[in-house]
Design a protein around this nucleic acid. Structure first.
Lengths: 193, 193, 193, 193
DNA sequence: TATGAATGAGACTTCATTCAT
DNA sequence: CATGAATGAAGTCTCATTCAT
């Protein structure tokens, strides 16, 4: 499995670091190779092309979110509490890796439409888990029985994403993780409170 | 005022059309010039550089949203109703101009970080109006008195934006405007209903 | 017509010169541009890509052969005499432009199979004229009535080509043009004489 | 003698096969190694470099032609008959090994000028035998006494080569071997018949 | 002998912008 | 005001060859 080879991980990490520092369009393959401590050509032993590196960055890092959300779903907790943990987890992962936050919230968005469609495939697993959580909440009566799952998912993800992007754009100068309880409450009870 | 010159408008419209048809990265200045019926060099009599065209696209088109939201704010209606009109207006404008929807929701997002900061400046006016609406709602008691305006704005905008983007990514194959009442209700009452 | 523009001709000539001096694989676009006195990018205003330059070289230079053979065919001469003029013309053109000789006999042959198929298309016109000449000779009784035109064409062209290539490989150190009478006699009367 | 080692032969055969299937420019060393069932590095225990493999391909395969022509020369037959056997042999060997035909007539020609000079060295033995045959024919009166040996050799080889190449380019869809008598007659008696 | 992971040089092409007319 | 031909910088990827094991 190539993903377990040490150079694979080194290159992915180097890509995050270089993109965060230089921006997407200034992240040349040669810079990434140098940061990873390998030759330019070595990159192509592990990745089909440059786009493939970027997709891998997203896959590898998104896995962190997904894995934890899977754990959360299996916990013996009220659904509302699980939603809270999911939001908090999302904010925490971004808070703990500032480079990752810049890359996912700002830089990777300027990739080509095609790459973004590929990234969306990766996102779908995350959104699928979110859907499962929403269904659970409807079934156990914690959420409104006539909740439109697609719309609710778009609200939850849209809110988390917009909140995260604003935080990054404001140079991460306030504490994102602390916003989790308020975001959670807002999503559950709406603006009427 | 250069904005009133006929070629200025022609070039902006050509840009929307070309970007929607070809994608951001395939929207070369020469293509835009050809579509607008002017020489390449003429572009530079009206715009400082390519980025300047794209910012103008956003400004011109965003103005449609902003102008209408200003009108809405001045109406003699409950705030909640104004919010509904704002959402519906947002969805309607995108529904009525498929090219614009593609350009704002997908293509312009892949512009450079710098350009996106500039675009954000334009967005701020829109978000400012949204803030005003939220403050009004809190003051007249329609919204929760302890509503965090920034978070609420991020939820409203994030939800509208995510809903719009999903609709574009699904090839605009369902009716976006019809979703307005449900989105409105969800934002107001949350998932608990 | 782009072929008449002065830069088009300049670039084609520069290509012949650079390929003859440096060899096919060392004939970088930037070298050709420099020799032609234009910017690298200018090449691409006149040619689709590098391969297109090479095809054009062949087309432009082959036209010299073809045009003269057309004239020869229209002359009021015995067919055998026309064949002689054709051979002599072929040898003369190569003798008069040493660079062209190197390029057509050695360098262009190492192009990709695809390019060589394209070059063959150009050659077909030349071979078609040769076929016409052979048919004329058969009809007026100068050539054997049961001559297989395809084979005869392959003999004539194969012999001219091999003779030319050997001459180039021997550094053009003897007089190619002087061989024309003997080649002509050999083709007409064979080895039995 | 390294040529007798089993891996040497395996690699040469793999090279012919890979070049015929993929074309000269797509015949990477790693592909040849894989086809031969050895590691990339092993190639370099038997060959100095890639060029050396290709020269060996030519040497090994050309030997088949040369060996048989030597046999023919020793036969007790009229020279004209020997020439016929030589032509027929040439066509037969190519007909019996389609890959070899593609490689020698099309693919190896696109090698670098330097490699082709090396290949020519190999060809010289074959052409030397052809010269001997021509001399014999002149001496025993079968061929014209004032035959220019170099020109005659170029005609014979040029014709055989052009005929073979045309046949390969036409996807080997007619019977090459059957052309031998007509080619033979044409070379001996010329176009006047 | 044999392996195969790693190396790193090198070139084609695009396209925003300029400026002489 | 308008033109459009010309510019030239800059980056991804391939693949022959090496060398530690």
């Amino acid at each position: 499995m190539k993903r377990e080879k040490p150079k694979y991980k080194k290159i992915v990490d180097a890509a995050v670091s270089i993109i965060a520092q230089n921006g997407y369009h200034q992240a040349q393959v040669s810079k990434i190779a140098k940061e990873a401590g390998v030759a330019d050509g070595t990159i192509y032993l592990y990745f089909k092309n440059k786009e493939d590196i970027l997709i891998s960055v997203f896959q590898e890092k998104m896995a962190v979110f997904v894995d934890y959300v899977k754990e959360i779903l299996d916990m013996d907790l009220p659904t509302s509490e699980k939603l809270f943990k999911m939001i908090e987890n999302h904010f925490r992962v971004l808070s703990e890796d500032h480079n990752l936050a810049i890359v996912t919230q700002l830089e990777l968005r300027q990739s080509s439409k095609e790459l973004r469609f590929r990234i969306n495939e990766v996102l779908k697993e995350y959104l699928g888990l979110l859907d499962a959580l929403l269904r659970e909440g409807i079934e156990n009566g914690e959420f409104s029985p006539d909740l439109d799952i697609r719309l609710a998912r778009q609200m939850v993800f849209g809110t988390i994403d917009e909140t995260s992007t604003s935080w990054v754009m404001n140079d991460q100068k306030y504490n994102l993780q602390e916003l989790a309880p308020r975001v959670h409450k807002l999503l559950l009870s709406g603006m009427k409170g």
